[in-house]
Design a protein around this nucleic acid. Structure first.
Lengths: 232, 232
DNA sequence: ACAAAAGTGTTGGTGTTACACCCATGT
DNA sequence: ACATGGGTGTAACACCAACACTTTTGT
């Protein structure tokens, strides 16, 4: 094989790796950030837990593959997904060369309906993860870093909540993910001045205290919250 | 093909796409941000310019593939590279399914030595780009956005300069890439308080004016410049 | 009337921007 | 001595962090 091979050649002449998409699906369950894992039934790593994933079909885009894997396991359709990183260590799969494009997804737990038939899936708390197959622990760690990072400068948090939610619920979601208490007044000011939510006009009446205003995400909004530039 | 295919199956049963790595190589040439392109000789897109790229070998990591493509075209070895994004539209290559993992690289122009034999390469100014093959225009645009973004909150700029440089040279690099004038005193304060450079002790004597102190990157430094968090 | 959760402003501090002059060298 | 680029400090401003009480409802 020549050292200067380039795509001028017929691609079919080269050996091809397998390509999969693995999805790190986050959701909030019982005031806890959790991730969906699938129990492997066949080797390699039979009996271990792994990220939901699937092979890329030749006629589908990577994003479509991610959504397919996700919908297949959760029944959820319209979801926030984002490509994370592509992992391709030659030995990451003992069978053959498999390159995986990792995605992460945020879904509201109340929209999860159908579990895939014949497969064991489970929502694991991030503090009680089992050993994972392949390099999935690395992928998951990467996804968590990215999620936390994104929360700090964008406003994706509400993707984990139902369509309509209160500011207290949103704050709680942020606190769970970032694992720290936030100041109520500062939080509200930041979220509201970011101008990405709109009031529904409705209020949530439930339990004791004063009813809370309900908000929804303004679909026309730019999700980026203003950040400080280093060199303005 | 079953709808719930997962990596429990033998990967060799599935049709495999080709996988390439394409590299967006930036450098500063004559006070201008430029990118290295290769002229395609064979179809598809024969005669058009494209990003340097190559097929991933079955025994090499993606990062190694990127470095190989890069070294092959520029002779440069130790380079700042970073994985950018993976592009996989099914029709992006007319021959067959080709998924490409895009990288970007920053190299000091004075370290470019050998051009690949038998290939026409050229450094194009970003303001005078030719039409590009495949979806390479999209990849390039993405890389430029990412480069500018990174400059705003990290200090990768010096990766485009020689080992040793003056603060004025660094500032000029930032100005070229961000395409705006920066304040000298503020720029110096930010860079120096970021604590990623060290004085060499030497001075640059050249041309008229006062000789400038020479700096080099502290290899032990953390390249991230402090950023403001949204929710502290 | 009391418990529970929602909602609301102000102040001090910190970091950022804007800005002008002196210094060291070559010619 | 003058032209050229290197180097330095400060004051106004904007943004952020910290903090406590009032309002609305259910019981």
């Amino acid at each position: 094989m020549p050292d200067n091979l380039s795509e001028n050649y017929d691609p079919s002449l080269f050996e091809r790796p397998s390509v999969t998409v693995d999805v790190v699906i986050f959701s909030l369950v019982a005031d806890d950030l959790r991730v969906l894992l699938v129990k492997r039934e066949a080797p390699p790593f039979a009996g271990m837990w792994a990220l939901p994933g699937t092979f890329v079909r030749l006629d589908e885009s990577l994003g479509d593959t991610a959504v397919r894997a996700l919908t297949n396991k959760t029944g959820v359709r319209d979801v926030y997904t984002e490509q994370l990183y592509t992992f391709g260590r030659p030995d990451r799969d003992p069978r053959t060369r498999v390159i995986t494009v990792a995605y992460f997804a945020l879904i509201p737990y109340d929209s999860v309906v159908q579990q895939a038939e014949g497969e064991t899936t489970e929502w694991f708390s991030l503090s009680q993860l089992p050993d994972l197959a392949f390099d999935h622990a690395e992928i998951l760690a990467y996804a968590l870093t990215r999620l936390r990072y994104k929360l700090e400068y964008t406003a994706v948090g509400f993707q984990l909540l139902p369509d309509v939610f209160t500011l207290s619920e949103l704050q709680k979601a942020y606190e769970i993910i970032l694992d720290e208490k936030l100041d109520k007044r500062n939080f509200r000011r930041k979220i509201l001045t970011a101008d990405i939510l709109e009031e529904t006009g409705e209020k949530k009446k439930e339990g004791e205290g004063r009813p809370a205003k309900l908000y929804r995400y303004r679909k026309d909004a730019i999700a980026e919250v203003k950040t400080r530039r280093l060199f303005p």
